[in-house]
Simulated scan of single mutants.
Amino acid sequence: MEGIRSNLFIALLYFLSVTAPSIHATDFKYCNKKKDYAVTISGVEISPDPITKGKETSFIISAFTDKPLSGGKVVIGVAYFGWSVFSKTGDLCANISCPIPTGDFTISYSQLLPAIAPPGSYTLTLKVQDANKSDLTCIKFDFSIGFFLSSERLTDT
C-alpha cells in the first residue's frame, strides 16, 4: 500500500510540473555583439513554457538604462526557421510610464499565438529604438511552439 501511495504521489508531482504554467528564463544574444547599446538586457522570461499555440504567451524583458528615455519604439520580429512570419512596431511608452528613469525597467509583450501556428523553432528579435530610429538595444532569442493546442482552448470549442 505504501508503494502505491508513493507512486501516486510521484505521478501527481510529474503531472503538476508538466501542466502548470511556468515562467522560464531563456538565453538571448545581442544582435551586434560589438555594439555598446544604451539599453542593456539582463534577462528574458517566457510564460508559459513550453509555449502552446492557441494560448496567450508573455515575453518579459528585464533591462537597464544609464540615461533617462523620453520615448521610442519597440520593434518585434519573429522568424520561423529563418523566414519572417510576424512583425510589429509599437510605442515604447504604451506599457511603460515615460520618461523611463535611469535604472532597471521591464518591457512586457503578450501575444495570442494562433491555433494554426506551425510547431517548431522560432527566433524573436526585439529592438528598442529612439525617435531617430537608432537602436538603443537589439536582442534575439529562440523559442519553440509545441504540436498541440492548449487544453483550455480544447474545452472552449
Results as ranks from 00 to 15, higher is better:
residue 2 E to S: 11
residue 2 E to V: 09
residue 2 E to T: 08
residue 6 S to A: 10
residue 7 N to H: 06
residue 8 L to W: 10
residue 9 F to T: 12
residue 9 F to V: 14
residue 9 F to N: 11
residue 13 L to P: 01
residue 15 F to W: 07
residue 17 S to D: 09
residue 20 A to H: 06
residue 21 P to D: 02
residue 22 S to G: 07
residue 26 T to S: 08
residue 30 Y to S: 03
residue 33 K to W: 05
residue 34 K to W: 12
residue 36 D to A: 14
residue 45 E to A: 03
residue 46 I to D: 01
residue 46 I to R: 02
residue 47 S to R: 06
residue 48 P to A: 03
residue 49 D to A: 09
residue 49 D to Q: 07
residue 49 D to G: 02
residue 51 I to T: 05
residue 51 I to N: 04
residue 53 K to N: 04
residue 53 K to P: 00
residue 54 G to N: 07
residue 54 G to Y: 09
residue 57 T to G: 04
residue 57 T to A: 08
residue 59 F to G: 00
residue 59 F to L: 01
residue 62 S to E: 15
residue 63 A to G: 07
residue 64 F to G: 00
residue 65 T to H: 01
residue 65 T to R: 00
residue 66 D to C: 07
residue 66 D to R: 14
residue 67 K to V: 15
residue 68 P to A: 13
residue 68 P to F: 04
residue 71 G to K: 02
residue 72 G to L: 05
residue 74 V to R: 11
residue 77 G to T: 15
residue 79 A to T: 14
residue 80 Y to G: 07
residue 81 F to I: 12
residue 81 F to T: 11
residue 81 F to G: 12
residue 83 W to R: 13
residue 83 W to I: 15
residue 83 W to Q: 15
residue 84 S to W: 06
residue 87 S to A: 11
residue 87 S to G: 11
residue 87 S to P: 06
residue 88 K to I: 07
residue 91 D to S: 10
residue 92 L to M: 03
residue 92 L to Y: 00
residue 93 C to W: 05
residue 93 C to T: 05
residue 93 C to N: 07
residue 94 A to Q: 14
residue 95 N to I: 08
residue 95 N to K: 09
residue 96 I to G: 01
residue 98 C to V: 04
residue 99 P to F: 03
residue 101 P to W: 01
residue 104 D to L: 12
residue 104 D to S: 14
residue 105 F to P: 02
residue 108 S to C: 07
residue 109 Y to N: 12
residue 109 Y to V: 03
residue 110 S to N: 12
residue 112 L to Y: 10
residue 112 L to F: 10
residue 115 A to H: 09
residue 119 P to I: 08
residue 119 P to G: 08
residue 122 Y to N: 02
residue 122 Y to V: 02
residue 123 T to M: 07
residue 125 T to H: 04
residue 125 T to E: 11
residue 125 T to Y: 03
residue 130 D to L: 05
residue 132 N to R: 09
residue 135 D to Q: 06
residue 135 D to E: 11
residue 136 L to S: 01
residue 136 L to Y: 01
residue 138 C to N: 03
residue 139 I to N: 03
residue 140 K to G: 06
residue 141 F to P: 04
residue 143 F to D: 06
residue 144 S to T: 15
residue 147 F to I: 09
residue 148 F to S: 14
residue 149 L to I: 08
residue 149 L to P: 00
residue 149 L to D: 11
residue 149 L to V: 05
residue 152 E to H: 09
residue 153 R to F: 13
residue 155 T to F: 10
residue 157 T to S: 10
